[in-house]
Deep mutational scan, measured.
Amino acid sequence: LVRYRTISKIPQITLNFVDLKGDPFLASPTSDREIIAPKIKERTHNVTEKVTQVLSLGADVLPEYKLQAPRIHRWTILHYSPFKAVWDWLILLLVIYTAVFTPYSAAFLLKETEEGPPATECGYACQPLAVVDLIVDIMFIVDILINFRTTYVNANEEVVSHPGRIAVHYFKGWFLIDMVAAIPFDLLIFGSGSEELIGLLKTARLLRLVRVARKLDRYSEYGAAVLFLLMCTFALIAHWLACIWYAIGNMEQPHMDSRIGWLHNLGDQIGKPYNSSGLGGPSIKDKYVTALYFTFSSLTSVGFGNVSPNTNSEKIFSICVMLIGSLMYASIFGNVSAIIQRLYSGTARYHTQMLRVREFIRFHQIPNPLRQRLEEYFQHAWSYTNGIDMNAVLKGFPECLQADICLHLNRSLLQHCKPFRGATKGCLRALAMKFKTTHAPPGDTLVHAGDLLTALYFISRGSIEILRGDVVVAILGKNDIFGEPLNLYARPGKSNGDVRALTYCDLHKIHR
């Protein structure tokens, strides 16, 4: 019993810090008490220290592992850092350059016999395009090294910054494609005289377009951006097909006994025919423009016929181009109408809503002055909100995010209106959640004399007048207030005048 009563005193000691020596009952000389009392004092002292730490809000209350900052290894790049964003855009520009100039170089340097010394005699450094290609190869190699040090988000939505895990993730992902696209074939085969082989191998750079397509997928929600990307894709495919079309004609031209190829026909049409040795002929500019003209006309199913396939190889390629053109029509131009419709969806919704308003007016036989006010209010409210119901949009977000959005939407009023000066951010967040926005066209009466005042109004834009009878008592403008002081009276009061809008007004109100 003594032991039980001794232990039962522990909660009292913990909360009230009572010393055991003052209790005459606990001072009985028993061996059990002498053993338990020192333990009680020690526990009391420890609990006292913990309570003191909690009340003082000291940093040592938290466990040590929670006080440590997340460790980022040296030379690790955050995937959302500004440097990584700028670097990704730079790589994107280099990939676009590669997609345009690599097929052009591979096709127009394929057994090209233009006048001038061969590239091997001039030297590697004197070729501007080769120098640019070398810079692109170096940048792609540097990009691989950067990807080995860039964080990523795993399946659990955690940012991984450990170098080993980053390397394994990159090896399992895009490393092989990036490595093949970054191989400097110019340096590996330079001086061997195989410019045709170098041009063909350099087309491996186009593998990076797969990554670019995935990154550009984030802009699919913007109709104008999608339309622009589709047109660029169409032009890029036409450019690639033009390079292939020229390569076919250029390879067949020296081996044909009869002059029936499209390059021969082009030379005869523009007065620059090929001679018996295969030299001469149109310039590279004429060849490229004509090839691009043929691919565009074939892809769009126009086909004027002034550039036509004559050999079997050219006919087979033309059939493939027609098939590609039909697929592009289905996948690209078939979506253009939907994209344009999405661009004008706001206008369509406006006309639909206006039609419903006019049908309501016609069905209920609203008189002319009231009908005009109804239409003007709808037009003004639509121009202010673009038909978007803010309350319906915010309803799907958590309250903390709703408060931040409301604070942002009402920031101008909260910053410049005098009653809100000096208020804490928590108070402003709470008030912003209570605001209701209303609009009024010129001549609209917001409050009639004798109406119950259940709200306090803040003028965000425009001006109003307060009338008693036919006498203008006051004219209020931006950041002015009218209405009933909230919670100042037990019952809502009545208006002693009319409140009429002089201009288009936007008002925020808080109800009782």
Rank of each mutant, 00 (worst) to 15 (best):
P441R: 06
G305T: 01
G271I: 01
E112L: 06
P369W: 03
S412W: 09
I405S: 02
L394W: 02
I361G: 03
T438P: 01
M433C: 10
S283D: 10
L207K: 01
T150V: 06
F397G: 03
P273R: 01
S276E: 09
P70C: 05
Q341Y: 04
H79N: 02
Y97S: 01
T300G: 04
I135R: 01
S337T: 11
H162K: 10
I270G: 01
A119M: 05
I77P: 01
T385A: 05
S194P: 14
A242S: 01
G278H: 03
I340P: 01
I388R: 04
H380E: 07
A423W: 01
M251W: 13
M231E: 11
S277Y: 01
E112M: 06
G199Y: 03
F234H: 01
E195D: 11
D257M: 06
T300W: 01
G422H: 11
T424E: 07
I146D: 01
A130D: 01
D444R: 07
N156K: 14
H351M: 03
P103D: 01
A440N: 09
M231H: 05
L188E: 07
C417I: 07
Y170I: 01
K172W: 04
H448A: 09
T150M: 01
V393C: 08
L92K: 03
N410L: 06
L200W: 06
G164K: 13
L374W: 03
V321C: 03
K172R: 13
K436E: 14
P273F: 01
F83I: 05
S277T: 08
R362A: 07
T438M: 13
R356E: 15
P163D: 01
S331K: 02
K202M: 01
A119G: 14
V226D: 10
Y222C: 13
I366R: 02
A225C: 11
K111P: 14
A235M: 09
H79V: 01
K215D: 03
Y350A: 01
P128H: 03
Y293S: 01
N410K: 03
G191M: 03
E359M: 03
P82C: 15
T438D: 08
G271P: 03
G346P: 12
L355C: 13
R211G: 06
K202P: 01
V212W: 13
L129E: 05
M433H: 03
N391A: 15
H351K: 06
L299S: 01
M251I: 08
R356N: 13
Y329T: 15
F435M: 11
G223H: 09
F435N: 03
V160D: 08
D257T: 08
Q402D: 01
A225Y: 06
A213H: 04
W87D: 04
L188V: 13
G191C: 04
V136K: 07
T98N: 14
F185V: 05
D217I: 06
S105H: 15
F304H: 04
Q353V: 03
E158V: 11
H448N: 14
S298L: 12
A403G: 10
R165F: 09
A392H: 15
V447G: 03
P103G: 01
Y104M: 01
N306C: 03
T347Q: 07
G249D: 01
V160N: 01
L206E: 01
M179G: 11
F333H: 06
L266N: 01
V136M: 03
S331C: 08
V131L: 14
L93R: 01
Y246M: 11
H79P: 02
Q269Y: 01
R349F: 07
